[in-house]
Design a protein around this nucleic acid. Sequence first.
DNA 1: CTGAAAGCGCTAACAT
DNA 2: ATGTTAGCGCTTTCAG
Lengths: 342, 342
Amino acid sequence: MILRGRNPFDGKPQLTLRDVAEAAGVSEMTVSRVLRNRGDVSDRTRARVYSAARSLGYVPNKIAGALASNRVNLVGVVIPSLSNMVFPDVLGGIGKVLSETPLQPVIGTSQYDPETEEKVIYEMLSWRPSGLIVAGLEHTSAAQAMMRSAGIPVVEVMDVDGDPVAAAVGISHIRAGRDMAREILARGYRKIGYLGSGSGGDHRAQKRLQGLREGLSAAGVTLTDSCFYEGASGFGTGRQMSADMLSRHPDLDFLYYNTDMNAAGGLLYCLEKGMKIPEEIGLAGFNSFEVLDGLPMRIATMDSRRTEIGQKAAELIAANALSDEIIALEPRFLEGETVRRR
Amino acid sequence: MILRGRNPFDGKPQLTLRDVAEAAGVSEMTVSRVLRNRGDVSDRTRARVYSAARSLGYVPNKIAGALASNRVNLVGVVIPSLSNMVFPDVLGGIGKVLSETPLQPVIGTSQYDPETEEKVIYEMLSWRPSGLIVAGLEHTSAAQAMMRSAGIPVVEVMDVDGDPVAAAVGISHIRAGRDMAREILARGYRKIGYLGSGSGGDHRAQKRLQGLREGLSAAGVTLTDSCFYEGASGFGTGRQMSADMLSRHPDLDFLYYNTDMNAAGGLLYCLEKGMKIPEEIGLAGFNSFEVLDGLPMRIATMDSRRTEIGQKAAELIAANALSDEIIALEPRFLEGETVRRR
DNA sequence: CTGAAAGCGCTAACAT
DNA sequence: ATGTTAGCGCTTTCAG
């Protein structure tokens, strides 16, 4: 007889349907039906099964269930990081929609590294999820191939400037940059500095910068200065960058930041230096973070609509359509108090 | 013949080991060995298998593998929320340690609701993970029973004031409150207000408040006022609470917040009102958030050691010991600039 | 309404 | 170094 080796770490042998079936005096099949609320089972049997399952402390084995049914109620979500508040917000939108379905999100992070992302996507797909949501449009070609041939709904989120593998939900960051240029110019600012992230990994910030440049040059204006940081955004980063840039170019009349977090640091710096905001100098950020309501001034920003992006993406997955729809939400300018009124 | 019903949403039939085996002209078992780097396989065979697998675009089915091997390299992590930056930091610590093992974290959120938490734990356990990390010590008794009988390493994190199901890694929040009381009193403040979260769900903040009260009363001092909010922490919340409390008690000389986020709002408010910090009024928060470096003053706070907590918890899981060790890290007071120097 | 049989895709154990 | 066999725990299908 073959003795199956058990994992040496296994505590007790796993409780199976069979155990519950014996305890309740019915077949495994009946137990399975009761526990999944499938098919007709008499109330009496149902009650017996429930009480047997409960008193044994039975927890079904989803692994086995998934293998047998070829159905896995998981949705893979691959994002760069959890430290950047942008992504938890997207996850919030996804979770809200999925919580009304049998689907469950499973999160993986790529640390802004394409190779890591490829691995994470591979791991996710090897669990045969019901759908996949991936942040951004830039991936290794192997990752794109996997996404394309996964045979499940795939949605790329955050960005629509590029070539999605399948469906995409996001905003155009190029357009966000252009719109910001228009708002800045319309308010009479002309000497503009950009403060953003240096890592080529932040494609979306790069696109906003590109849009900004395009928008300015359409009006014959050139970006006066730009400055890039490595590492995390934050008040300290924003403060430092602002100080550096203003010492290089004391004549700047506008600072555009890649994110509100940095903009907040810049705002505090400028206020401390006694600069007149928004007359002397204007400031704007990106994302619209609620935690920051309560700064001395409301920062002009653009709503990146992350919660809605998460929701729409989850809806596409829940609809189980292998669509290649591209849903472009409009970035929304929020005037705040750090720019002159038009 | 039996035609197995496939999920109507299935695209193509799944690619199996058998397909790769045929393409490479070897047995399924050999393919399995190559793909898992197990056992001895000749270089020639290995190469053939790899190229077959790659050219077909084969992605192994972990569901089947897990069922057959009774091994699932997942670690369930259950936290209240991702919006509170505390938890992403813990996840960072967990991820860092697990990335050096074959284990992968899977995140679930409870939304600060014990019933939801119970469900999430149940779902997690039904995937038969290799370990479980749960935030906090307060759970439904059903959840505790599941954790106890899961037969896998279970670690409760963040808090050590209570009765863990098995292992625990965290700080004593009661002690954090007491230590803060001592620091406040040692600096000569006597009229102290507490500003915190009202939701009974935030057990750890409650414990800090309790510790604060104990620490004060040991010195014969009573908390002058306390105030609680519902909803999210943030600058606006901190500002509002501070304004309310100071209008009720203009004679307060210290404000202790449940989190640095709120403390930051309070700091900005007090500065705007022209109050002298730290002479006239002192401020302290909790957690030590790096993003906030760059505020006009560094807020006095206490390091909640979340990254280390995540790391230690992950180490316990990785060691695969069914231990009931309680690891209490020390909360560390960080003086900042919003309290008088001793 | 209930049960019996087959098998999901993979890996452990036992050959060779 | 490679192949063969049995079976993981569940669900699907078909038969009462």
